[in-house]
Design a protein around this nucleic acid. Structure first.
Lengths: 212, 212
DNA sequence: CTTTAATTGATACTATTGTATCGATAAAAA
DNA sequence: TTTTTATCGATACAATAGTATCAATTAAAG
């Protein structure tokens, strides 16, 4: 409580993947420099937000030319630790789980899904080149591979049970796609992903639109 | 610009589905009243946040007993317009699309997915009791059914094209699961859903954890 | 070489969101 | 009936996030 660490604010953190994606695109298009204005336009943000966010990642622009694309990309990658991927496993190979297994973009964000687990014998095999193992092998395999992150895509009623297995297997972060609160000990981080939130937001935006 | 309408803040809106889910559970457990403290504990929030959010939805609690569960549920449903569902269609019946088609919870949040569309002939048929039509029939069917909301689950490179079709068919809201910015005319609302944001947040929380 | 225009980044400001405090209220206990 | 206690809700406060302004800088144009 004595000294307050100055942390980068969360919205900035959450925008970093956007910037990286757009910089990648811009680079593919052959641009070597890009202005905050251009990025803002392309990403539906304010230019000043872009400048401040890039400043946080340690990126300096040049007046009249903007930011060097390549330098900005590596700065973001270093700042966010996207370069040294963390190994992850996924539990629950239903449609959502398989969709996540199929995403190719995660590796660029430092996430390497090495395997999935499911309690349904029919699911055992391979999806998108990733092995799917029986859930019974979860603990042993995770410990062997020194997995850090677990992605939770099981039906809600199994959420806490699988969470407990993840904690027991030494995982430090859980990306939770179920609508349940997870009980975890100190030292384990949970990131909720609740689609209902976005839907609620869309609903009110729509009704506000028709009122106005 | 003359008078500023006082709008409910977005975080409150986004928490409403959580409350509704928890109230439903609590009701199923036979409780008739629930305190802000109980809800806060169960949802990992502060009690005062719960009280303020419920107050926004017009729910009054009683000292010493808390909030009436049934009344709170109907208040939220009315406030959020969850009672009169809006018809929606989904485009892109890949894994993610099928996962969304299978969610049973959306109807409680006022979203009724009536059909899906895909350009792949192999996908035509039925998934989770929902018909999947060829994309070529999109416009006609949407107009006939007076669809309001489109759920976009196609690969990024098709995002803008399908968006244009949605706009042309008169849809007013687009729930965008692609990582692309969509260009839409005034009067059409876009809600982005970018998993990378949550992943970025999880990453930094993890690294902060190991530093501390 | 001088002027112009585009763009950054520092500073200050505003708005939004969350938190703490505490008196008021109503149920339960004495 | 009176006292106690849990809980709400009003008010004030603090932290976070976003926005506006503008001098400083640098490339390009004149």
């Amino acid at each position: 409580m004595s000294e307050k660490k100055r942390l980068t604010k969360l919205p900035t953190i959450r925008r970093m993947p956007m910037y990286l994606r757009m910089l990648t695109k811009v680079q593919k298009d052959g641009m070597e420099h890009v202005s905050s204005n251009y990025l803002a336009e392309a990403l539906d943000l304010e230019a000043i937000v872009v400048r401040k966010d890039l400043a946080v990642a340690g990126i300096l622009g040049k007046p009249r030319v903007g930011f060097e694309v390549k330098a900005a990309m590596t700065a973001i990658e270093q700042f966010m630790n996207f370069n040294s991927p963390t190994d992850a496993v996924l539990v629950g190979a239903g449609h959502l789980g398989q969709a996540l297994l199929g995403y190719t973009g995660f590796i660029n964000l430092g996430l390497n899904i090495v395997a999935a687990f499911d309690s349904d014998a029919d699911k055992i095999g391979t999806v998108h080149d990733k092995p799917i193992y029986p859930l019974s092998e979860f603990s042993d395999r995770c410990k062997n591979m020194n997995i850090q992150i677990g992605i939770l895509c099981v039906p809600g009623r199994f959420a806490q049970d699988v969470t407990d297995q993840m904690v027991a297997a030494g995982l430090k972060g859980i990306w939770n796609f179920t609508p349940r609160k997870l009980n975890v000990p100190n030292g384990v981080v949970v990131q909720r992903e609740d689609l209902a939130e976005g839907l609620a937001e869309l609903s009110v935006k729509l009704s506000r639109m028709s009122e106005a």
